[in-house]
């Protein structure tokens, strides 16, 4: 479960701003659709952890949102396990870049959203408690999100996503805004969680190191509209260390070059 096929997906945004005072040529240019994704073809295998890398504004979040069903592709289609994605579904849970926890619900109630369809209230409680334990938030069950630190909030949201038992986990920049140490810890936790659950996991990031350390595969998007610049299987053993795996380090420098920046300054 969790086999994703992205079939020549294109996405265009239309600029609705009216620029009345400008001359015709500029006007027509502004009203032209803005292409964001250009014929993206990808296939993610069941249980794979895929890191999607690219500079900000290159359309990687848009791609995720199309996979999650929040936005429709202009053309092409996404299928998950043979079903065409048309709308959001609890089979593919999206973990939001900016807090997606409902601020008026405690950690317990937020995770409870995932299991609210369970009839038996005892097993429902057990399930919530189990997931709070997985992300080590015991003692914070009845705290509201604003009372938690940034890292704890992400862990709570991760627990909520896991409790649904989705086929696919979709994470949009899960580490943005965290301090360095929390970032490292969360990274480890996500990798462990993936090892533990074996769910297909898509992670959008702009951090090259994150992508190389975490991913079973790395996809690099670039350009406007975005095209796939690299689609590379990472068969390196874990735990991964740039110092110990020269090939990994080489790949890293290669990506740096590809993005047009020099690694050594």
């Amino acid at each position: 479960m969790g086999h994703i096929i992205i079939n020549s997906v294109c996405k265009e945004y239309r600029n609705r701003r009216k620029i009345a005072r400008m001359d015709e040529s500029i006007k027509s240019k502004f009203q032209d659709p803005i292409p964001v994704l250009d014929k993206i073809d990808l296939e993610f295998n069941d249980g794979e952890m895929v890191c999607i890398l690219g500079p900000s504004g290159c359309g990687k979040s848009t791609m995720l949102r199309i996979i999650a069903g929040f936005e429709a592709a202009t053309s092409g289609r996404v299928t998950i396990d043979g079903n065409i994605v048309e709308r959001p579904s609890s089979d593919n849970i999206f973990v939001f870049q900016n807090n997606g926890l409902l601020p008026w619900m405690t950690v317990w109630e937020n995770i409870g959203l995932s299991v609210r369809q369970m009839q038996d209230s005892r097993s429902r409680r057990e399930k919530i408690a189990e997931h709070i334990e997985i992300v080590e938030l015991e003692g914070f069950e009845h705290h509201y999100p604003h009372q938690l630190s940034g890292g704890m909030r992400r862990r709570a949201e991760l627990a909520r996503a896991l409790a649904v038992n989705p086929n696919v986990m979709i994470m949009d920049e899960p580490f943005s805004g965290l301090d360095f140490i929390t970032h490292m810890k969360m990274r480890e936790e996500v990798v462990n969680m993936h090892k533990f659950t074996g769910k297909t996991t898509l992670i959008v990031t702009h951090d090259i190191d994150d992508a190389l350390i975490m991913g079973d595969r790395i996809v690099v998007l670039d350009g406007r509209p975005a095209r796939i610049k690299m689609n590379h299987q990472l068969d390196f053993p874990r735990p991964r260390d740039f110092q110990k795996i020269p090939a990994l380090n080489k790949l890293r420098q290669q990506i740096f070059l590809m993005e047009g920046i020099s690694y050594a300054v």
């Binding site: 069903g69 959001p88 999206f94 939001f96 995932s114």
Partner: peptide, 11 residues
């Protein structure tokens, strides 16, 4: 709008 997306995501 994120909250409505969460709502859609959780059916």
């Amino acid at each position: 709008p994120v909250f409505f997306q969460v709502a859609a995501n959780f059916n």
